[in-house]
């Protein structure tokens, strides 16, 4: 099945600029070497590889990006930025994209949904970090 992407619509450009600014990363510099994707320890769980996430951001493909599993799989482990020849931090790009949803009140994790057992077992450090990443 093929899908036509409108690449240079105004909206796409705006979205690309917004994510670039919010992440603070030189997304335009990415030349798709793929180092980030090969360094990423959780890429098997992702639907868009880290390098693809960056490419799609350059193109401003908003729907594809905010619906990607990848932004909720990234562990902010910084393996990607350690390898990127351009110093692009994909964790920041993923966070900027997540914020697009979180700021619209779309939580990924709701703390009250954790069972009592989970609350008893999981230490603060895990709960706090998870909520920081995945809830508004």
């Amino acid at each position: 099945m093929s899908k036509t992407l409108k690449l240079d619509s105004e909206d796409a450009k705006k979205f690309a600029a917004k994510i670039q600014e919010r992440s603070g990363e030189p997304i335009d510099m990415c030349f798709q070497c793929g180092e980030c994707s090969s360094a990423c320890p959780v890429s098997p769980e992702m639907d868009l590889m880290p390098s693809t996430l960056v490419r799609f951001t350059q193109l401003g493909l908003k729907d594809e990006l905010i619906n990607a599993k990848t932004i909720w799989v990234c562990a902010s482990c910084f393996h990607c930025v350690a390898r990127c020849p351009k110093g692009i931090d994909v964790a920041k790009v993923a966070e900027a994209l997540r914020q697009e949803l979180l700021r619209k009140k779309l939580d990924y994790v709701e703390v009250r949904d954790l069972s009592m057992e989970e609350r008893q077992e999981i230490p603060q450090i895990a709960i706090i970090s998870n909520l920081r990443k995945f809830s508004r």
């Binding site: 703390v111 009250r112 954790l114 603060q124 709960i127 706090i128």
Partner: peptide, 12 residues
């Protein structure tokens, strides 16, 4: 841990 268990949102 009881406080965090009953009021987990304090982690926020």
């Amino acid at each position: 841990s009881v406080l965090l268990e009953l009021y987990p949102e304090i982690a926020r």
